[in-house]
Simulated assay, not measured.
Amino acid sequence: MRKFSLVVFSLVLLLSACAPNFGKQNEVVQTKEKDKGKAIIPKYNISDKYYRTILPFEPGEARGLVVNNINTRYDLNEFETGLMRIAQNSFDTEKYYFREGQEIKAKTIRQWLNRQYTEEQAAAGKVKPEDNIGLNPVNTGTEADPSSPIYLAHILEHDYLSKDENGNVSLAGMTIGLALNSVYYYKVHVDGGTIEKEMKVDFPDMEREGKRIAEDVVKRIRATKGLGDIPITIALFGQAAKTSVVPGNFFAYTTVNKGSSSLNGWEKIDEKYYLFPSTAAQEAHRDDTIAFLNFKQDVEEYFPNFNGVIGRAFYTGDQLQELNITIPIQFYGKTEGIGFTQYVTGLVMEHFPEYITVSVTVTSVDGPEALIVRKANENEPFVHIYQ
């Protein structure tokens, strides 16, 4: 019989019995960074997919900028978590500890995200020569008809620290994510107001400019005090359009050896997200789309007038890795919600192959109602009904 989490009290008991004793397991270490002092490394790690984070938590220098510069919440989540996933190619989750970027200052990132200016443009805008360090190309056109898009939308830094035999923790490596525009949005002043226009960026142009910018970023990092000798991983992320309901994806990364300013060869990242159902998913992954449509049809048989089931599928190459399904629905009682959740859990086990991870979130106007998670290659799903 499948296991259902129906009572909050039982869940609390389970968590209290199984949860680690953080007070006994945390380790106090000495930092060797600019602000010397004590730090804490949690010994408990919830998964080998994640890094342990140095405490107390220090927000990144560019905190807040990412929200303004990234098009969608989906892009924001994938940009951050995807960069951590890429970091695992260079930094072992068992040996390194995570810290949000502290080395490249927020002011510097803002300046790097600007366009380059000609001498005349810099003088007109009162930009000092030392501040004219934008990584995006000069606009030789007009406001309404720019000569080129802004390619680079955001720079995200993640720091990785290691501990020596004396318990000292110090910076040991860095990953840099470059978010690139697949669509450049810009505002034009018209008749006392503004309108937003857009310019599509072809992938070859985005890739070329991303790799050019990466070389400049590495040179600038190497010229920064204290960063001349650490290994660096730098990755290119293509943002989705503002209207997209699935995120963009990382498409290439490279590494820079300790003490070097030369990029090693670029490695292709073959990842992509699809919306189910959609024409793009149907054309690229017909069998997976059919499985989803059969699941959707069975859900709608429970509620004949309902057709709101959508899925976001994550692929590596041609292989479906993870499918996140959302079912927004209105229940008229808790028992109805329990019955529906039991029914959907059976459909998950029936329609989707064992090698993929499937999660289903059931929501209503009152908030989340239920969560169903079937991990890859596991026979028993986890089901929680919110009280």
Rank of each mutant, 00 (worst) to 15 (best):
G248M: 01
L161V: 12
K375Q: 13
G333F: 06
G337E: 14
K38R: 13
R110K: 14
Q342Y: 08
I329A: 11
S47C: 00
P42E: 09
F306V: 12
T142K: 04
G173Y: 08
Y160S: 05
A214Q: 07
L6M: 11
A376Y: 06
S16W: 11
T335E: 15
M1S: 14
F314H: 13
R52G: 00
G308E: 14
I213F: 03
T341D: 10
V256Y: 05
T194L: 06
Y274Q: 03
K268F: 02
A153I: 00
Y273V: 02
A172K: 02
V348F: 07
A124Q: 13
S261Q: 10
G167T: 09
I104H: 05
M174P: 00
I54E: 09
N69C: 10
F91T: 01
P42G: 10
V218T: 10
G346K: 08
D318T: 15
N324L: 11
R312T: 07
Q342D: 13
N45M: 08
Y332T: 14
T93D: 02
E58N: 12
P56L: 02
K126L: 11
A313R: 06
F203R: 08
I54S: 00
T326G: 12
I86F: 01
E271M: 01
D288Q: 09
E157R: 09
K200L: 09
H351L: 12
E209L: 08
I325H: 03
K334E: 15
A284M: 05
E378D: 06
G210A: 04
L347H: 02
N136M: 01
T254V: 01
S182L: 10
V299N: 01
T254D: 06
S260W: 00
K200H: 09
Q387G: 15
S5K: 13
L171E: 05
E143H: 07
F250Y: 15
G265P: 04
H384T: 09
T357G: 01
L156K: 08
